[in-house]
Design a protein around this nucleic acid. Structure first.
Lengths: 111, 111
DNA sequence: TTTATTTATCGTATATTTACGATATAAGAT
DNA sequence: ATCTTATATCGTAAATATACGATAAATAAA
């Protein structure tokens, strides 16, 4: 009885949650940061930046790619990743429309 | 060998990841949305909104509270929750400083 | 062709998350 | 005092996530 009930929620809720989930690990934040700081794709440097085994980094990269936060291209024996800015833009909009717009009205906390 | 290595990352990375993790489930997004739309605390209505058992909702609320995204006050037999706007403000700033600022420079994707 | 290099995937052990029902707790209502 | 209502916590089963080493795959270099 631990089957996820994610289908029971709206698509927007699921999408926002999926984006958040992709960022829900410091290693992935670190990867995203490294990619965001480079204008060009990074190929192998990421493995050296992170304190994790190569296979683990590869797994994190895969998750980020599946979630759509990064794009990747295979370039010979090496791969090439970069931030998918469109996905971030969409997340930002969703996040703001959910919270920041409401914040202006409801600034005063009640507990 | 599945021990988390979160300590190996910076505090900011861990904090951002922890915030994202709290939002990484549609049920919690739904709870946050409901709370954000109300200026006053919702007590029991949340359980009725969600398609989940009362105990499960309570568990999600607890996670959100521990992560600091919501505040809660016990008021007799019922509880009272509301958004912690300060935490959202902080997250927004961190997120923007990590990604949106960089985005302006690196708009052009490369793969 | 063989060898080296780089990255992805597989197998697997452990940890964490998710969900539920059952039960405890705490205060108001009767 | 007892019953009702609202919420939290416990126990637990199943699902997912995390990490690593080993290995595969794919190209470049020799």
């Amino acid at each position: 009885m631990a089957k996820h009930k994610k289908e029971a929620f709206t698509q927007r809720e699921q999408d926002l949650a999926a984006f958040a989930k992709a960022m829900a690990h410091p290693a992935r934040i670190s990867i995203l940061k490294a990619l965001a700081q480079h204008n060009e794709c990074i190929c192998g440097e990421i493995v050296e930046i992170l304190p994790l085994a190569q296979s683990t980094v590869s797994q994190h990269l895969k998750e980020l790619k599946i979630a759509g936060l990064i794009d990747g291209a295979i370039d010979g024996p090496r791969s090439c990743y970069c931030i998918n800015w469109k996905a971030f833009e969409k997340f930002n909009q969703e996040f703001n429309s959910l919270f920041n717009n409401l914040k202006l009205k409801n600034e005063k906390a009640c507990c």
